[in-house]
């Protein structure tokens, strides 16, 4: 069953239909919150809260991409959480904690875990708008048009947020020695 059918059933009070939508998008919503907040517990809370408020204001959904609408709710909750952190500094170890969920091959897990930690710290160093645009694009693979819906901004704004965020992250990764220079990359390909 597609999103629209489930949405109209959920609007009629069918909680099971809504929970099918939850099941469909909870991975996406949780991971976006996780990359935005660098904190598992906070991401869990934000994701849960996003689904609760989505159910409550489902009547206001005006069509288009449901997952973009959902991501917008989740992103706003993440911004609220970060605003609270500004008053009470965020745990800096959080990003390092996110490094690795234990995986099969210990060596590759270590490599991946270290890289993931660097990437998370790099993301955390970006302004929130650029971080969100980059997470939606490069981690979740959304198209610019859908990102514009999720961020409630123009396509031009999405373009510039991704361009600036990605350039900054490139500089960060280069400084960590995790990215060879473009010239070397070009040589590799030839």
């Amino acid at each position: 069953m597609d999103d629209d059918a489930l949405i109209s059933r959920a609007r009629a009070g069918d909680l099971d239909a809504f929970n099918l939508l939850v099941e469909r998008y909870q991975g996406l919503v949780f991971n976006v919150c996780l990359r935005m907040l660098s904190d598992r517990a906070a991401a869990e809370d934000a994701a849960q809260e996003a689904f609760i408020s989505a159910y409550r204001v489902l009547g206001r959904f005006r069509g288009g991409s449901f997952r973009a609408w959902l991501l917008r709710i989740a992103a706003n909750l993440c911004y609220d959480e970060m605003r609270r952190w500004r008053r009470r500094p965020l745990p800096l170890e959080a990003a390092a904690d996110l490094a690795a969920p234990a995986a099969q091959s210990p060596e590759s897990a270590l490599m991946r875990g270290e890289l993931a930690g660097h990437l998370q710290r790099g993301l955390a160093s970006l302004p929130a708008d650029q971080r969100l645009a980059l997470v939606l694009r490069d981690v979740q693979g959304l198209a610019y048009e859908e990102i514009a819906q999720a961020m409630a901004c123009s396509l031009g704004t999405v373009k510039s947020r991704i361009a600036r965020g990605r350039a900054r992250l490139r500089d960060y990764l280069k400084a960590q020695g995790l990215l060879p220079s473009g010239a070397a990359l070009a040589l590799e390909e030839e």
Partner: peptide, 18 residues
């Protein structure tokens, strides 16, 4: 090349199970 490599690297971030 650099921007593409950055995007590729970022896409390596694992999707975690809720």
């Amino acid at each position: 090349e650099e921007l593409q490599a950055t995007a590729r690297t970022l896409s390596l971030l694992p999707q975690e199970a809720p």
